[in-house]
C-alpha cells in the first residue's frame, strides 16, 4: 500500500513519524517535501531527478540501511524543475518493486500535498497536542477525503501532558494514538536509527507499532 503522512501545519514531526512508520512497516520512505526536504540525503539520483524525468524511481531508492529511503534534493532549482504529477507513477513503481511505501508529505494544502493524497491508499494525520490541532487535523482529513484518500490513523505527536485522544478519534473517525515527546525520537532521523529498531521496548516504539497496526488494519 501507499501511505501518505500529512499534517496541516509544519513542524509537528511528520518526517520523524514517516521514518519510524516505514521502519515498523518494513516500507520505503519517500521524502516528498520537494521544497523543504529534511529526511537524510545521499549523493546520487533523488526525487527531484525522478520528477524531472532524469532518473528511474526504483533506482533512486537507497536500500540496505535500517530503512529504505528515496531521498529528495535540496535545491530550489530542482524543486522548480520537478513536475509533481509524475509522483503518481513514481510511487506506484516503487510500490511494485519494493512493497509498501510511506510518503512524507509537505505541510499545507498545495498540489505537492494533494498529489500524494490522490495517489495514496490511506493517510496518517499527524497533529501536535495544542488547542488548534484538532481543527487542523479536520481540515487535513477533509482534503484527503476530497482526493479520495481514507484516514487510517491519527497520531498526536510530542505529547507531554494528557490529551483528549477520544475527542480526536470521535471527530476524525479513526483510531488516535499519542506518541510521547522523547529525545530518542528527535535524534532518530539524524542518526538514521529508527527508535523501533534501536529501542524496541520503549514507549515511543510501542506507540509507533500501534500506529503501524492501525495502518495495516485499514489496508485490509
Amino acid at each position: 500500500m501507499i501511505l501518505a503522512v500529512v499534517s496541516g501545519k509544519g513542524g509537528v514531526g511528520k518526517s520523524t513519524l514517516s521514518f519510524e512508520l516505514a521502519a515498523a512497516l518494513g516500507a520505503v520512505v519517500v521524502d516528498a517535501d520537494l521544497g523543504m526536504a529534511n529526511l537524510p540525503y545521499a549523493p546520487g539520483p533523488d526525487l527531484h531527478d525522478v520528477l524531472a524525468g532524469r532518473a528511474d524511481p526504483v533506482e533512486a531508492v537507497r536500500s540496505g540501511g535500517p530503512v529504505s529511503i528515496l531521498p529528495c534534493g535540496r535545491t530550489l532549482a530542482g524543486a522548480r524543475a520537478a513536475d509533481v504529477r509524475l509522483l503518481a507513477d513514481a510511487l506506484r513503481a516503487v510500490e511494485a518493486a519494493h512493497g509498501d511505501v510511506v510518503v512524507d508529505c509537505p505541510a499545507g494544502m498545495r498540489a505537492d500535498t494533494g498529489v500524494p493524497l490522490a495517489v495514496a491508499d490511506a493517510c496518517v494525520v499527524v497533529a501536535s497536542p495544542k488547542g488548534y490541532a484538532l481543527a487542523d487535523a479536520v481540515r487535513t482529513r477533509e482534503l484527503a477525503r476530497e482526493l479520495g484518500c481514507g484516514l487510517a490513523a491519527v497520531a498526536v505527536n510530542r505529547v507531554v501532558d494528557a490529551v483528549p485522544l477520544d475527542a480526536f478519534a470521535d471527530v476524525l473517525g479513526a483510531p488516535a494514538t499519542e506518541v510521547p515527546a522523547d529525545a530518542r525520537l528527535s535524534e532518530a532521523v539524524e542518526r538514521f536509527e529508527p527508535v523501533v529498531a534501536s529501542s524496541p521496548e520503549s514507549l515511543p516504539s510501542t506507540r509507533i507499532r500501534e500506529l503501524a497496526d492501525a495502518v495495516r488494519v485499514s489496508g485490509r
Binding site: V115, L117, A118, L147
Partner: peptide, 8 residues
C-alpha cells in the same frame, strides 16, 4: 477517483 491532475 481523483487524479494527480485534479490535485494540481
Amino acid at each position: 477517483d481523483s487524479t494527480p491532475e485534479d490535485a494540481v
